[in-house]
Design a protein around this nucleic acid. Structure first.
Length: 509
RNA sequence: GCCGACGUAGCUCAGCUGGUAGAGCACUUCACUCGUAAUGAAGGGGUCCCCGGUUCGAGUCCGGGCGUCGGCUCCA
């Protein structure tokens, strides 16, 4: 059989040859330094068989910046971590240990809780493993065999993983440690020149807070100590530019125990704030938005009508009112704008109506979720609601997409688009959701915007297009969101008179 | 809410095994008038997050709470 190399030349190999065989055929040095095979964007273990006519690229220890090469290096490092933990903490169960942006992690269930001081000890053990050297052995096994193996070891999580595994099941063994793993992995541990454990955190099994919480150990690994040092240096640089630090240094804002998650804006900070206000007001006018101001407090009945009471009452600030009433401080503007639209008779000739309001919203967030100015309990949001007829939906969504793109471009923020679809707890029928999701999807596609689908992540009243950014630490943050709501207008009894002299319910974006 | 860590002067931080708080920067005054963070001298400034406990005595130990940070979960 033949495989095609990156320079388009062909390499003749015996049937069933592996990537490693290919590397050896090219040269002993290449085989020595080979890390993995990449074929049409997919990464493959060096020990997996190649197919006739396959295009292959062999990555080596010299591809120190290649994301795939680092991915494999770190994946193998995570197995070293698991081996070390199992040796130091007998009785620990292992869960999963994938590479991630900038590093890797492994989830464990320790018999006794561990603290951060344990990391040093574990790191030392990993260094000992590296000094000894480890090589990885890849082996395909049957599901029954795999389950039996892990059941004997008391590895409940692995047993569960085998049950839900797709495709062939492979074991990777290094030293005394065997793990269920799809790979690929390094041949041996020589290329791992620098490992650092960076953190300890709780993480739920399978990402579900109803499951047991495991202990996640984060780490990172590189092909050289210099690369690790450079990475740590970048983290320091990022810290210097952290908005929380700049807020203090430049005297822009501060946070205080007196009002958790509710920033105090200083005179210099307000200069920036007002510039942003001017920008949004100017652009809103240019784009046909009508500025409005609606109340901060509403009778709880209003929140019951909107559906927020049922879903978010725990996260609302409440204020007693009179003998037996309670007001809720608004966590968003929708009901205010609904009530405003419903306060008079509307004609199809008035639509689209675009209400804009930069109101301050309050959300009583779960403890442990706040983060500087990026996740607060008191946020001023440039918010708008468009009341439209069905055939105005697309044009309005185009307008929102263009507006958002314009603003983020202005600040050099690179936005990623995500389409968030119907959640489990939703209002309305599947037919309504088919329509609203379809409208957002087609708007994105007709605008030629690349997006990913975030299944089940929509709001309870409608799907949304979320714009995300990634910070220097690789964390994702949601920015603006474009939502298509087919529920709230009906719940608030909103109508407009159509050309046919009949009442219709508007859609809201 | 959960796991881990932290909470000392305006800011950044030190304070070992418990004995009534320290530094640098900033601030004030004086001297120097010296050209772009960083001259000298003197000085002011702290309920050591809060509450409770142990102790003759707690910033330091223990318990609870609040807040902040790294994550998980959540995010209308």
């Amino acid at each position: 059989m033949k495989v095609v190399l990156p320079d388009s030349s062909e390499l003749e190999l015996p049937e069933g040859a592996t990537g490693l065989d290919a590397a050896e055929a090219i040269g002993p040095r290449l085989a020595e330094q080979a890390v993995l095979v990449r074929s049409n964007g997919r990464v493959m273990d060096l020990r997996a068989s190649l197919e006739d006519g396959q295009q292959i690229q062999i990555l080596t220890t010299r591809d120190t910046d290649d994301p795939d090469a680092l991915y494999v290096l770190r994946h193998s490092a995570s197995h070293l971590l698991a081996e070390a933990v199992r040796r130091l903490y007998p009785g620990t169960k292992i869960a999963i240990g994938p590479p991630v942006e900038n590093g890797f992690y492994y989830d464990f269930e320790f018999p006794e809780p561990i603290g951060e001081d344990a990391l040093e000890r574990i790191e030392e053990e990993i260094r000992r493993e590296l000094a000894e050297g480890r090589s990885w052995n890849r082996e395909e096994v049957s599901a029954e065999e795999a389950k039996r193996y892990f059941a004997e070891q008391g590895e409940d999580y692995k047993v569960e993983l085998v049950d839900t595994a797709e495709g062939p099941i492979t074991f990777y063994t290094q030293g005394e440690f065997t793990d269920l793993c799809r790979g690929p992995h390094l041949q041996d541990s020589k290329p791992i020149k620098a490992v650092k454990l960076t953190g300890l955190a709780g993480a739920y099994w399978r990402g579900d807070e109803h499951n047991t919480q495991l202990t996640r150990i984060y780490g990172t690994a590189f092909f050289s100590q210099d690369d690790l040092d450079a990475y740590l240096h970048r983290l320091d640089e990022a810290k210097r530019r952290d908005h929380r630090r700049l807020g203090t240094e430049l005297d822009l804002f501060h946070l205080s125990d007196h009002a958790p998650g509710m920033p105090f804006w200083h005179p210099k900070g307000m200069v920036i704030w007002n510039e942003l206000e001017d920008l949004r007001r100017r652009e809103n006018v240019a784009r046909g938005y009508l500025e409005v101001k609606t109340p901060l407090l509403y009778d709880v009945d209003t929140w019951v009508t909107s559906g927020h009471w049922e879903k978010f009452r725990e996260n609302m600030f409440l204020v007693p009112y009179g003998e037996d009433r309670t007001l809720g401080l608004k966590p968003m503007n929708c009901p205010g704008h609904m009530l405003l639209f419903g306060s008079a008779l509307r004609s199809y000739r008035d639509l689209p109506v675009r209400y804009a309001e930069a109101s301050t919203l309050h959300r009583n967030e779960r403890a442990g979720t706040l983060h500087g100015l990026l996740r607060v309990q008191h946020v001023t949001q440039d918010d708008a609601h468009m009341f439209v007829t069905p055939d105005q939906i697309e044009e309005e969504i185009f307008g929102c997409l263009d507006y958002a793109t314009y603003l983020y471009d202005l600040f050099g923020v690179e936005a990623r688009f995500e389409l968030s679809t119907r959640p489990e707890n939703k209002l309305g029928t599947d037919e309504e959701w088919d329509f609203t999701e379809g409208a957002l999807r087609s708007a994105l596609e007709r605008r030629g915007i690349e997006y990913t689908v975030n299944e089940g992540d929509g709001a309870f009243y409608g799907p949304k297009i979320d714009l995300h950014m990634t910070d220097v630490l690789g964390r994702s943050w949601q920015m603006g969101t474009i939502q298509l709501d087919s529920q709230m207008p009906a719940r608030f009894g909103l109508t407009y008179m159509g050309e046919d002299n009949a009442e219709h319910t508007p859609y809201v974006i």
